[in-house]
Simulated assay, not measured.
Amino acid sequence: LTLVDTPGAANDADAERQGAGAAIADVFAAVAGARVPITTVVVGEGGSGGALALAAPGNTWAAPDSYFSVIAPELAAAILKRPADRVRATADQLRVRPQDLVALGVVRGVTGPGATAPPPPG
């Protein structure tokens, strides 16, 4: 079971010198090559390659108030040179909320209080 709650790894030159990218790649490989079932629950922030690396292919779930993306909405807005009041609109465009992720097939469903499970496969 992997629980994801990370705003994202640093993406500067110092982080690269310290091996952040290589460490994330190692986690991707470990999860992909695991010989045991892995379940992932995004319990909060899931805004980085590291968060994606921990996601179990086909068995990732999201808590009702979580988000999951290759980049945090705040960072995406900053890269796009949008003001802070546009972060919510940027999140809408990124489609990072649990209901979006279910619709896109990125997560199996939303889990937690008040959440409903998806119908069984097939």
Rank of each mutant, 00 (worst) to 15 (best):
R97A: 13
T111Y: 11
L101H: 12
D92L: 13
D100M: 15
V107S: 00
R95C: 12
R86G: 02
T111H: 03
V110N: 00
Q93W: 14
G109N: 02
T111D: 01
P113H: 06
P113Q: 05
G112D: 07
G114M: 07
R95I: 12
V106W: 06
R97F: 14
L94C: 09
P98Q: 11
A91W: 09
V87L: 01
R95G: 13
V110P: 01
T90L: 01
V110D: 02
V107Y: 05
V106L: 10
R95V: 11
L104F: 04
Q93S: 14
G112L: 03
D100K: 14
Q99V: 09
D100T: 15
R86Y: 06
V106M: 04
V96N: 07
A91L: 07
A115Y: 07
V87M: 01
R97I: 07
D100V: 15
L101K: 09
Q93R: 15
A91H: 06
G105N: 05
V106D: 02
G114C: 04
A103C: 04
V110C: 00
D92H: 13
A103I: 05
G114W: 09
G109C: 00
R86H: 09
V107E: 02
D92C: 07
D100I: 15
A103H: 05
R86D: 13
R88W: 06
G109Y: 08
L104M: 13
P98K: 09
V110W: 02
Q93N: 14
R88D: 10
Q93C: 12
V107I: 08
A103T: 11
D92R: 13
G105H: 00
V87K: 01
V102L: 10
V110E: 01
L104Q: 14
V102Y: 06
D92V: 13
R108M: 02
R86M: 10
V106F: 01
V107P: 00
A115D: 07
L104K: 05
D100A: 15
D100Y: 15
Q93G: 13
L94I: 10
R95Q: 15
G114E: 08
Q99E: 14
R86C: 07
T111K: 03
V106T: 14
P113Y: 08
L104A: 15
T111S: 06
A103L: 06
A91F: 06
R88E: 11
G112H: 05
L104S: 01
P98E: 11
L104H: 02
V96I: 15
R95L: 15
D92S: 12
T111F: 13
R97M: 13
V96S: 11
G105R: 01
R108Q: 10
R86W: 05
P113D: 08
P113G: 00
R86V: 08
V87I: 12
R108N: 04
V102H: 03
R86L: 09
R97Q: 13
T111E: 08
V110G: 03
V106Q: 02
D100E: 14
R108G: 01
G114H: 05
A91R: 04
P113L: 11
R97Y: 14
A103V: 04
R86K: 11
V87Q: 03
